[in-house]
Amino acid sequence: MCPCVVIHCRVKGIVPFGESPFPTKIGEFPVDVREGYCDFASNQDKLQLGQKIGPMNTQFDFGTLGGFVDLPGSRKGFITCAHVVCPNDILQNGNVQNFVENNEVMIADKSITTQREPVGMVKKAAFQFGEETQVSVDAALIELCSRFPESGNFAIDWTQDNKEKIRKMGFSETNVPTFSNGETTSISSDNIRNDLIKCGAATGLTLGRLRSMETHAFIVNKDVKFSDNVCKFYHQMEVIPLVYPSDNFTVKSFPPFITHGDSGSFVFMIVHNSPVILKCVGLAVAVTSYGSCLMTPVDKVLSALGLPSDCLMKFNPSEAAFNTSNGQGGVSEETLTRLLQRMQSNISQELAALEDNINSRTAELAGRVSMIEQEMEEQRKESRILSWFNSLCSIM
């Protein structure tokens, strides 16, 4: 084996403007260029929707990061459930905001077992229940202090088993659902049968639909149990898991829309399939024994937290991708790959649509040509008959 000089770079085959290619030899030694890099071992990944979060001073309790919000003064935050970040006795007494104001409730990323630094602090909480004339709300606002988001991507597990599950939903690594527009929508007779989607810390991506009758959603009032206590939640909507006829599930293996640990997930409506466009409709707060979800409408959640209706964070997918730096003002390999995959997917979809349109127009034109040919043949027949009749008349 001959000795060589090894040079590492992030991406082979790309030479930045103004720079020269690596040399093939340094002195008498050949150069071997390899892809690789070295980072500090601290976690610097940006937060994502659906991530596992919880109070720093607890080892096992966790919930889900629902959605990001813009706060005054260029500050950033996210929303989850109050019962994810506040103790049960505080919830039962109904003084959650007083507890938040008098205690620094720090929130950590629970997906990292060695996490020692908080990602944010609880600034406001609402746990309103038991009032029959009001919509019950279980929500908390956390102001971020680190790992600020740069995209509306979901924290999706791309292990091999999960890939198949996500593929059945109609998504893939090159066609992933994201929430970048920051838009909300209300449930109406026009969209009541649209599919819903959520990304939870426990169950990941799941699809569902509103429990409804004809043109309106069922409004449910249910007793919700937490610890040894029970509270009544009024005027909630119920999301049931979506299962396709081809799925071979038994009653016992029926997949839930949410489970314990998914509390705090934002629930999104799929308003367009290709490309996937989502709008937020609510916050997942509780799970039933049969796998459905109690969802509080998003407008009630924002109002209870004193937030404007247009506060959900907006991301430009392409700009967010190019702002993901490798620490030196460049674009990371992972981000560049994801962006190129998305561009390839969009181009493929546009080409497929163009091909379908061409095929449709070709068939339409072929039909018209056939009709014209038939009409011309009819005219030729009429012309021959008329000529024969004139000839006959001249003889007579």
Rank of each mutant, 00 (worst) to 15 (best):
F99E: 11
K76L: 10
V84M: 03
T24S: 15
H216D: 03
K163S: 06
V298G: 01
T324E: 14
R147V: 14
M343P: 00
C38E: 14
Q48F: 05
V105S: 10
L354S: 13
C86I: 13
T185L: 10
I166V: 12
N359T: 11
N357K: 13
C81M: 05
L205W: 03
L210H: 00
R75T: 09
R75E: 15
I107Y: 05
R116H: 09
G94S: 01
G261Q: 02
V224H: 07
G36P: 05
F218Q: 01
N102C: 14
F249I: 09
G50E: 13
Q160N: 08
F218H: 04
N153T: 11
G50D: 10
F218N: 05
P149I: 10
V100M: 10
S325T: 15
D195S: 14
T362K: 05
K123R: 15
P21D: 15
S212H: 06
E19Q: 13
F233L: 10
N390E: 15
N229S: 14
V69A: 04
K110F: 08
V31R: 00
F315R: 00
Q344N: 04
L305V: 13
M56H: 09
A139T: 11
L354K: 00
N316C: 07
L205V: 14
V224E: 03
N346Q: 05
I90M: 01
T80E: 03
N43G: 01
N153L: 14
V100N: 12
G367P: 09
F62D: 06
N175M: 13
V224F: 12
L207V: 09
I197H: 00
N326S: 11
G170S: 11
T337Q: 13
A366M: 06
G63N: 05
R338I: 04
K381G: 14
I192E: 01
C199Y: 02
V122N: 14
P3E: 14
S172V: 04
G261F: 03
V271E: 06
Q51S: 15
A366G: 11
C81F: 06
L302N: 11
N153C: 15
F40R: 04
F254R: 12
S318L: 14
N88E: 10
P87F: 02
R193E: 02
V224L: 08
S227L: 03
Q379V: 15
G291E: 08
L294V: 11
E382P: 03
I219G: 00
P255T: 09
G291L: 06
D262H: 01
P23Y: 12
H8K: 04
S394I: 12
E364T: 10
L242C: 05
T206P: 02
T174P: 00
V85E: 06
M396S: 08
